[in-house]
Computed example of a mutant assay.
Amino acid sequence: MADSHPDPRDTAPDTSTGFGFGLHHVLICLPPGGEDACRSYYVDVLGFVEVAKPPALAARGGLWVRADGLEIHLGVEEDFTPQRKAHPGILVRELDTLAERITSAGYAITWDENLPGHRRFHTFDNHGNRLEFLTPA
């Protein structure tokens, strides 16, 4: 059966630059002293693993987490404001399983069918930052 919503990237122009761009990490901010709360969400709920920060950067606070091919740096921002619109779009193979895990931990998710060729939902971490999880349909 043909997909009624083709991925727009399939018809996009060639985007090659020769630089080999790729994503190393995403930075999400947290309030001062918010590291333990982030651990409880990103490690305990999402299943990421905390990785050691280099000593010079560890002195700044925050934490780094990694899962599969994704690394997220959670950095302390003195005048923290949660990102309610800006967000990382995180590809997930087992979207429904992740949705169940997040809701079982007491976090709300909102399914959104407005991205052709993908299934996705949005949620907020325990500091109010928006996250999008998606998988190709």
Rank of each mutant, 00 (worst) to 15 (best):
residue 91 L to I: 13
residue 105 A to N: 07
residue 98 L to V: 03
residue 111 W to S: 12
residue 38 C to A: 14
residue 99 A to F: 01
residue 11 T to M: 03
residue 35 E to R: 11
residue 38 C to F: 06
residue 27 L to E: 12
residue 114 N to P: 01
residue 107 Y to F: 15
residue 87 H to G: 02
residue 126 N to M: 10
residue 6 P to T: 05
residue 1 M to K: 11
residue 136 P to M: 02
residue 112 D to V: 08
residue 77 E to A: 08
residue 49 V to N: 15
residue 135 T to E: 02
residue 18 G to K: 13
residue 10 D to V: 14
residue 111 W to T: 14
residue 24 H to T: 09
residue 41 Y to N: 00
residue 79 D to F: 01
residue 9 R to M: 03
residue 29 C to F: 03
residue 113 E to R: 01
residue 65 V to F: 06
residue 36 D to F: 14
residue 33 G to E: 04
residue 75 G to S: 06
residue 54 P to R: 04
residue 124 F to S: 04
residue 132 E to T: 08
residue 30 L to R: 08
residue 18 G to E: 11
residue 120 R to L: 12
residue 12 A to D: 11
residue 42 Y to R: 11
residue 23 L to K: 12
residue 45 V to A: 13
residue 84 R to E: 06
residue 3 D to E: 11
residue 16 S to E: 13
residue 120 R to E: 10
residue 76 V to G: 05
residue 44 D to K: 11
residue 33 G to Y: 08
residue 91 L to S: 13
residue 37 A to W: 08
residue 52 A to Q: 03
residue 67 A to Q: 15
residue 102 I to W: 06
residue 22 G to D: 12
residue 1 M to F: 15
residue 24 H to I: 05
residue 24 H to D: 07
residue 93 R to I: 15
residue 133 F to I: 01
residue 103 T to L: 03
residue 19 F to H: 15
residue 128 G to V: 08
residue 27 L to M: 15
residue 2 A to N: 09
residue 134 L to C: 03
residue 59 A to Q: 14
residue 125 D to C: 07
residue 119 R to Q: 09
residue 49 V to A: 15
residue 5 H to I: 13
residue 105 A to T: 07
residue 18 G to S: 14
residue 115 L to T: 02
residue 122 H to M: 09
residue 22 G to W: 11
residue 109 I to Q: 03
residue 107 Y to K: 14
residue 68 D to E: 12
residue 72 I to F: 04
residue 123 T to G: 00
residue 101 R to C: 12
residue 16 S to V: 11
residue 86 A to Y: 07
residue 91 L to A: 15
